[in-house]
Computed example of a mutant assay.
Amino acid sequence: MSSRVMIDSPGDEEVQYLTSRDVTSKNRSRASSSATLGRTTDDEHNEEEEAEELVELFEHEIIDLTEDEIESGTHGSIRPGEFSLERFREPRSGAQFSRGDLIQVENVELGSYTIDFVQIKIIASDRQGDCKIRGIPFVRTRKLLGKLPKKCNEICMLLHIQRRDNGQELPAVLIDIPTTSIVGKREIVMTNAIYPEHCYNGENTGLRVQNEQAQQRLAEDYGKLVCRWKFAIYFTVQRQSRATRPEEEVLERVQADEVSGSRYCVSDEGLCNQWRGGRIKGGSWPYSESSIIDLESKPCSVKTARPAGSRRIGQKYTLFDSFCGAGGVSRGAQSSGFKVQYAVDKWADV
């Protein structure tokens, strides 16, 4: 059993441990979905050691697999007795929705999380003519139990990914949304840029409102939504039970190939350069001038490279020693002229 935390948030000053969560109300309704998260009591006393560790780590959440297609690996596809539709017209409002659209929903909950939006992946109709909307859920960042900063119109993709016994990962589970829960269509921007770039808080609408709260409410109701993060919950179906606990939670940024358009995409080199604040030739400690290397520019030729002897007095490369143990690497780097800035290890006695 592993617990992996992937955080790449240059603007956040502290690490967020995803396996630490607040307890929310137990009286929550559950949506009809391919995989429904709910809270139940643990009355299985004969679980193995590994299962007991999962209970301790995720003691407040259980995945209740309510559909046979989860086990067969066909979740997220057209099921027997259904046929695919390209679009759907909502009878009450007359609004038309197509695959790929982002819809706002209400009264839909998935375990600990209230689902605010769903990106339509499948529109299916059964033999009775009833339409079903199936897609990927999104949650406002302020409702992610403290995993992300609370920003106006910033949302996060919520993924439930099943692993087979051999470690193979299946596509993310799609949830079913009743058509009565649809509020309307919304505009989404997928970007890997760092906040506040491309953010939308209602200030640029040009509309005059009474106060800041009314302006934010107007933006949340009608403004474009920005997704920079994906929150994935991994689980493995237990053979002895149809209910299983999550094994791993991962919070990661949207990748460049998932971005909506070129104007919202930032190269990996550009993100690295922005996060590091640039690179200084010869080492950045304690050198403070602004001769920064642009990672997106072409590398300098050998003829234009700075001579090795031009390093300024006291200028050193900095070192971050992760999993440092007794500190052998740090000591060797220090002896070689590096400035050891940080050294971390899980062992409390180090």
Rank of each mutant, 00 (worst) to 15 (best):
L110A: 02
L110T: 09
L110C: 07
G111C: 03
S112N: 12
Y113K: 08
Y113E: 04
Y113R: 08
T114C: 13
T114Y: 07
T114V: 12
T114Q: 12
T114E: 09
T114W: 02
I115C: 09
I115W: 03
D116N: 11
D116F: 02
D116E: 05
V118G: 01
V118D: 00
V118F: 01
Q119T: 05
Q119Y: 06
Q119N: 03
I120N: 02
I120M: 05
K121F: 09
I122H: 04
I122W: 08
I123Y: 07
I123L: 15
I123W: 00
I123P: 00
A124L: 05
S125Q: 11
S125G: 12
R127V: 15
R127E: 15
Q128D: 09
Q128V: 09
G129Y: 10
G129M: 11
G129H: 09
D130S: 12
D130R: 13
D130I: 15
C131W: 12
K132V: 10
K132N: 05
K132H: 11
K132L: 10
I133T: 11
R134G: 07
I136Q: 06
I136V: 15
F138S: 09
F138Q: 08
V139M: 10
V139E: 01
V139N: 01
R140F: 13
R140G: 06
T141W: 04
T141I: 14
T141L: 09
R142Q: 14
R142C: 14
K143I: 08
L144F: 04
L144K: 06
L145I: 11
G146Q: 02
G146W: 06
G146S: 10
K147Y: 13
K147C: 12
L148T: 04
L148N: 03
L148A: 04
L148M: 10
L148C: 08
P149A: 11
P149R: 12
K151H: 11
K151V: 15
K151E: 12
K151M: 13
K151G: 05
C152Q: 14
C152W: 09
C152Y: 07
C152P: 07
N153L: 05
E154V: 08
E154Y: 03
E154L: 09
E154K: 02
I155D: 03
I155H: 03
I155S: 02
C156E: 01
C156P: 00
C156W: 03
M157T: 13
L158H: 03
L158Q: 01
H160D: 00
H160K: 04
H160R: 06
I161A: 08
I161V: 15
I161N: 01
I161D: 05
